[in-house]
Amino acid sequence: MQTIPIRMRTNRKTRSAMREKFSQPSTVVSGVLLFLVTICATFAPLIAPTNPYDLSVVSIMDGRLAPGEKMFDGTVAWLGTDGAGRDVLSAILFGLRTSLIVAVCSAVIALFIGLLVGLTAAFFGGRIDSFLMRIVDIQLSFPAILVALVLLALLGKGIDKVIIALIIVQWAIYARTVRATAIVERRKEYIEAATCLRLSSFRIIWKHLLPNSISPLIVLATLQTAHSISIEATLSFLGVGVPITEPSLGSLISNGFDYILSGAYWITLFPGIMLFATVAAINIFGDRLRVLLNPRLSK
């Protein structure tokens, strides 16, 4: 029995522990699903059997075909067609694309703004901190969906408008989270050491505070992406989100709502399943990520 040097052991241990954690069924399933969803959304124009928005292809004659029936031009509509004769499968792929673009763009920009505000508040403290955090409080005291509805009513329709609305709804959550982590890091002695070296505040925030407070944000960002997909779907369902010419999963669901009582369930059901699967995959993956990145939660 020989004593093994500690250093080597921890390295090897963390690596194999990582492998062990990643090989859990929930991580694998959600990861694979997430990967597939991303691929489908990215390559939608290449994968989709038809282009549902090319008016020269769409024919009203194909309206409300049940899943598996053949369309007029001979292609099989695996998930049926909607009232206007568009292939639901193709519509879902294109809709997913819109939904993901909206969610990821808003999450990234909101993350950036939140990071800036949170780090500034935590680093300078005092009045700046109180001022910024009161703004955050005000922002957080309104329900997200309400703020988004009002904003969209003011701004009008369009993908860019939805993204702006989602950023305004979300930045405060990031700001609050990053401030909480950064305020703990701020009190640690390496920040004091950097202050002793008289480095500029910008450099201390950028090189010292940021890298040490970012990991909870990465997790939050994944979870918030899922959240913003559902907010966007809700907005589109309510008719204030993306325009009908660039449908998202939400507007597809709302689109099929008129037909659900007449038996054409597929127009609403399949986009709904897709929405559910995407949000669930991102959430589960984010949750696993949280466990992986937080050494206190993992055993």
């Binding site: 640690k188 002793c196 040490n212």
Partner: peptide, 25 residues
């Protein structure tokens, strides 16, 4: 005027290599 701190576990930035830490100034 430089300072050496009490807790060696929090006085170094965990995300920087030793080279970065000591050459930063």
């Amino acid at each position: 005027l430089q300072m050496i701190f009490q807790d060696p576990f929090s006085s170094l930035n965990a995300k920087m290599s030793v080279e970065d830490i000591i050459t930063e100034p």
